[in-house]
Structures are given as structure tokens and as C-alpha cells.
């Protein structure tokens, strides 16, 4: 029995589509109910629906063998996992954004205040890549408000189309990382349940390649 942690929401549905394409019976997981654990004895699969930011935790501790989660969450949580496949789902970018007037002038502001839902990614980027100390302001949503209200000079956030930014007079200033959903595996499960997990990885990889061929 493999336990698979899915990120609640659209990503869960997309993951199930891909698994179906790879030949797995995921009807149990499609069931519309309030159940948090969906099990299919015959297929040997158990799905748990977790908040995306919790998926790496479930997998690291072995409460789930496998998980599907965005690279943003993996970077932020910094867990010890095997990150075996880029599923190419939910593609977007982690960016530094701010008033369009700051374009190419980001380095000119000293002692920046940065609003973000991702304090670890932000710290790693400014301290590790840009070699600069910043003041990080942890926010929980509508991060674009921070530069508009003067709470922070810039933000670090996920950018998909960039529409929210542009409509508020903001723009992408720098790209921190490319983001997409990844298949992660617990390091012990990879060993103890290799007979189930390794075939699953290669079937999903094949399904992905097939999908790429179609597009």
C-alpha cells in the first residue's frame, strides 16, 4: 500500500489526471466527499488530501510515501526528501516585484523591507544570492498590498500571468526561481517500498513524455 499526499485544490486534480494517464485507477481519489483519506485496497493506493505547505512534512516523516507539491513549497520548507520528477504542472515564477519605477534600480535601495508569504525563500535569495541583508515582513495573502501601502518597498511572491501586479502599477523586478509541481518521495520508502515506487516513477515519467509529445 502506497500513501500519496496530494496538495488540495487544482493541483490534486491535475495529478490524478496524470496518474490516470499512467494507467493507475484513481476513482477512489475522485470521490467527492469530505473524507480526508481515500483508500483503494485493490489498487494498493491511499490518497491523503493535505494543505500544500503540509505535503513535504507528511512525506519527510514518512506519514506519506509520496507527495505532489509545488517547488515553491519545497524551497520554503527545505525538507529532506527525494525530489524525483518535475511534473510540469502549475508552472509559474517566484519573483521579486515592486513599483515599475524600481525596474533595474532594485540594488539602489538600501535596507529594503520585503513583504512575502515565503520568508525562507526570501532570506535565501537576498542573503545567499544577492549578499544583502533585508528586513522581511511575513504576510499571509494579498502581498501586493505591501508596496502599495508603504509597508514594504518590494515583495517576493509567485507570479503566474502578472495581471494582478500590472493592474496595481507593479512589475516583476527579478526572478528568484522557476516553479512547477514536483513528485517527492520519502527517503526510507524509496528503499523499503522500491518495488511499488520505482515503477510508479517510470510510468509517470513515460506519461509525461507522451503528454509533451501531444502538445
Amino acid at each position: 500500500m502506497l500513501t500519496i499526499a496530494l496538495s488540495k485544490g487544482r493541483l490534486a486534480d491535475q495529478t490524478l489526471d496524470l496518474m490516470e494517464k499512467a494507467g493507475y485507477d484513481v476513482t477512489a481519489a475522485r470521490e467527492k466527499s469530505r473524507k480526508l483519506i481515500l483508500e483503494d485496497q485493490e489498487a494498493g493506493l491511499r490518497f491523503i488530501l493535505a494543505k500544500p505547505s503540509d505535503v513535504p512534512t507528511y512525506v519527510e516523516y514518512g506519514a506519506a510515501d509520496i507527495g505532489v507539491v509545488g517547488k515553491d513549497t519545497l524551497l520554503e520548507e527545505g525538507r529532506q526528501l527525494y525530489e524525483v520528477l518535475d511534473l510540469g504542472l502549475g508552472k509559474c515564477r517566484m519573483c521579486v516585484a515592486g513599483p515599475a519605477s524600481l525596474k533595474d534600480k532594485l540594488d539602489e535601495i538600501p535596507n529594503k523591507r520585503v513583504g512575502t508569504k515565503y520568508p525562507n525563500i526570501t532570506r535565501n535569495y537576498f542573503e545567499g544570492v544577492k549578499k544583502e541583508s533585508v528586513e522581511i515582513i511575513k504576510l499571509n495573502g494579498s502581498v501586493e498590498l505591501a508596496p502599495l501601502t508603504g509597508l514594504a518597498e518590494v515583495i517576493v511572491d509567485i507570479v503566474e500571468s502578472g495581471r494582478t501586479l500590472y493592474e496595481n502599477g507593479l512589475d516583476v523586478l527579478e526572478t528568484v526561481a522557476d516553479i512547477s509541481a514536483r513528485l517527492v518521495v520519502n527517503r526510507v520508502s524509496m528503499k523499503m517500498k522500491a518495488d511499488e515506487i520505482k515503477p510508479m516513477i517510470s510510468r509517470l515519467r513515460d506519461a509525461l513524455q507522451e503528454q509533451e509529445g501531444e502538445n
Binding site: 516523516y61 520519502n186 527517503r187 526510507v188 520508502s189
Partner: peptide
């Protein structure tokens, strides 16, 4: 060394 039911070596 690994065994079942714990997520760490």
C-alpha cells in the same frame, strides 16, 4: 539502515 514505519534511517 532503514525499516518500516519510520520515515528516517
Amino acid at each position: 539502515g532503514y525499516t518500516y514505519e519510520v520515515g528516517f534511517p
